[in-house]
Design a protein around this nucleic acid. Structure first.
Lengths: 399, 399
DNA sequence: CTATTTAATTCGAGGTGCAAATTAAATCCG
DNA sequence: CGGATTTAATTTGCACCTCGAATTAAATAG
């Protein structure tokens, strides 16, 4: 257990203040004091240091209160967008998406590389990622030296603390210290994180869970991932592992163990159509899901069946997750949502059937069809969060 | 988010020191300083205040180091057993077990009431519990005024923070504020907690998880419960709910949703034999499981079948839980362990089959056949934990 | 009986948050 | 137009926390 000293206090309260400034847009010191329950004295001290460090800015307008109030006007504070820049990336089997954002999380540039990196040697993947980061940074009119941190979100089981990849569908190798590898190549601190965790934090920062302290996110992509937000923090299992939902067992069938991935994984659904040449080509290019969408709308029975089965499996799984975590909201994201109504309806039905009566109504299901950019932005949020937490100033006296 | 002030610091470090004294038995200040990474100055201050409050004692012997060391001898510190007394209880459908413990968690007296309270009106149950607490306290040679806190562990979904019972197999009513009811009756602060959580904390305090910061416990009783220890703290889901594993869905069968409780719940197994009169009587008295044990050893095929099915279902579920939490250890407790080899073997086999390869070996399964006393002792640990956390002294200066 | 060694406490410095007093910057109104 | 009023933000003074260095306490070695 980490020992508690006065500086820890400051760190906690500082993060708290900075986060409320970020969340509540331009906000005055008095209001920060009310929200955080810190005294105005302390808020003044902290905001003063944040101003000194250039992390926030003052603005002498924008007070929304009833116009023409008496008294000294409030000075509004907001995050300084230019205090830092980070790169966030989503690395998937068939594409990589990069974004550069400022300190506020605003996207400065994006870059999508529709490349299949599936099972390439690690050196090749690292080359491509490095290239993507560099190009996206240049697109933003910046140089790598201007970038404070990079976060790569990728599917699989990732040990956040060390940056080790325990298993991932896009790597042949196992137990790779990808974070170290990329940090060296980019000569910039690089974080490796599960893509599901990244988008979970993204939703908490500027998505569909901004208002919540607890929630669960389920990502339905090539890999089925889980992100749990608990008390405003990512729940990273014991040892900082991420969760791989696809490994969950749904039951036993005639062929033995039935795992979720075999019912609802991208390949399980797409596999239904491997015979079709044009289709196989689309899959190879990572367009499988959009292609499937078209086929489903054309009433392809086999595919609709697969979608329904997948929806049922996911619905049951969500019910189980809700049974365990009882979150107020469950957010579903990922390419499989493109399967459309057959999938979503059977998912909803299965969920409604499987959720225990005592928990009926505690969790709301939210479907989120954000683009890949948002995933990358979530990765950026992971990088930003660590910057927000890190001590900036020399911790010296306020002068 | 709670605002951080200097007193919070003290509270954290104080708890930290007190806990290492409790865990590491008689221990010197220097050693505490090493373990907690607090300076000897701070340790001295804190232990001084703990001594003033009478929570710990000094002992001028017991230094295990190489005999005949030079220098001033270390003064050993240990928890003062008599600093407080608490009552812990396990309330089950067919019996209630009470223990009175001292501040160290040592059992001073126990009381078992083999009463079936299943579905009695709340007033009746409250009467019985009150009676049991009072009698057990008297047995310990104490009076209720000597008791600082009571914790009742019972099956079901309990909201720890408020003491509300959301659902429990032993209550007809729902959403009861049982904690308030019992606090009033006993005029002693009373905590209501899920029995699974209680024994989880018990194992962390003085059981099979003393050495771990993270672990998962699965309780197989009338109700199937879950306890998750995460970073030395009980993980209480969003909103402080406890987990009801029995509601987990295993899959869909011909009759629709198949829940774990229908495969592995006590009644699911015992139900196999409801026709037998003597057996039904045993079940009614809460001796079902021991009776079953005898029958299984006599090669009762129907029951062995039920045990095997239950073991499979539990094994799969554990694999899923491990997939989600990846704890270093899983502890299994509860009356169903009495089913013996047919159950345990099929459980182990199913687990081995269902655990994803990437997680093979991360979790060790531990079977714990502690008596009901230990459950009650776990409830006492919950009560003690809150006492340990609470500010004792007037928080004033050290004088 | 003194030197040495190790444990524990005391002392002073530096950090932190808070309440009360003070200063700053606007509006109100005679 | 200028003092009274009102509200925001900072300054001041104090209590608390932790820590390193110096000091005191309590044993052994010789």
């Amino acid at each position: 257990m980490k020992t508690a000293d006065p500086e820890l206090l400051r760190a906690i309260n500082r993060l708290n203040v900075l986060d409320t400034i970020r969340r509540r847009g331009p906000i005055s010191r008095v209001e920060i004091s009310e929200r955080t329950e810190l005294s105005t004295t302390t808020v003044s001290a902290i905001t003063g240091s944040l101003l000194d460090d250039g992390l926030i800015l003052t603005r002498h307008e924008g007070d929304i209160r009833n116009e023409a109030v008496r008294g000294r006007p409030r000075v509004m504070l907001e995050v300084n967008p230019d205090a830092a820049r980070v790169v966030g990336a989503k690395i998937a089997a068939s594409r990589m998406v990069f974004v550069v954002t400022n300190f506020r999380g605003d996207v400065l540039s994006t870059l999508t590389l529709p490349i299949r990196i599936d099972r390439q040697p690690i050196a090749v993947i690292a080359d491509l990622v490095e290239d993507g980061v560099r190009r996206c940074v240049v697109d933003a009119g910046l140089s790598l030296e201007d970038v404070d941190s990079v976060c790569l979100g990728l599917p699989g089981v990732i040990e956040h603390r060390t940056g080790h990849i325990r298993s991932s569908p896009i790597f042949r190798e196992i137990n790779i210290d990808f974070a170290a590898e990329m940090s060296a190549r980019l000569s910039t601190p690089t974080i490796v994180e599960s893509d599901a965790h990244a988008i979970t934090l993204g939703h908490h920062w500027f998505g569909k869970a901004r208002d919540l302290q607890d929630m669960v996110l389920i990502s339905l992509e090539q890999t089925l991932g889980l992100g749990v937000l608990h008390g405003n923090r990512l729940f990273r299992g014991a040892g900082g592992l991420s969760h791989n939902l696809g490994d969950l067992v749904l039951g036993t069938g005639p062929q033995g163990i039935v795992r979720l991935s075999s019912q609802a994984g991208e390949s399980a659904i797409l596999g239904e159509q491997q015979t079709d040449g044009r289709f196989a080509e689309a899959v190879r290019l990572g367009r499988g899901m959009t292609h499937v969408q078209a086929l489903i709308q054309a009433d392809d029975d086999r595919l609709i069946g697969a979608a329904v089965r997948a929806g049922e499996a996911v619905g049951l799984t969500i019910a189980n997750i809700v049974t365990l975590f009882a979150p107020p909201r469950v957010i579903l994201v990922g390419s499989s949502l493109a399967l459309g109504e057959p999938f979503l309806n059977s998912l909803r039905d299965a969920y409604a059937l499987a959720i225990p009566p005592s928990l009926r109504g505690v969790s709301e299901l939210v479907f989120d069809d954000s683009t890949d950019d948002f995933w990358a932005q979530g990765a950026a949020a992971v990088a930003l969060y660590e910057l927000y937490e890190s001590p900036w100033s020399t911790t010296g006296p306020a002068l």
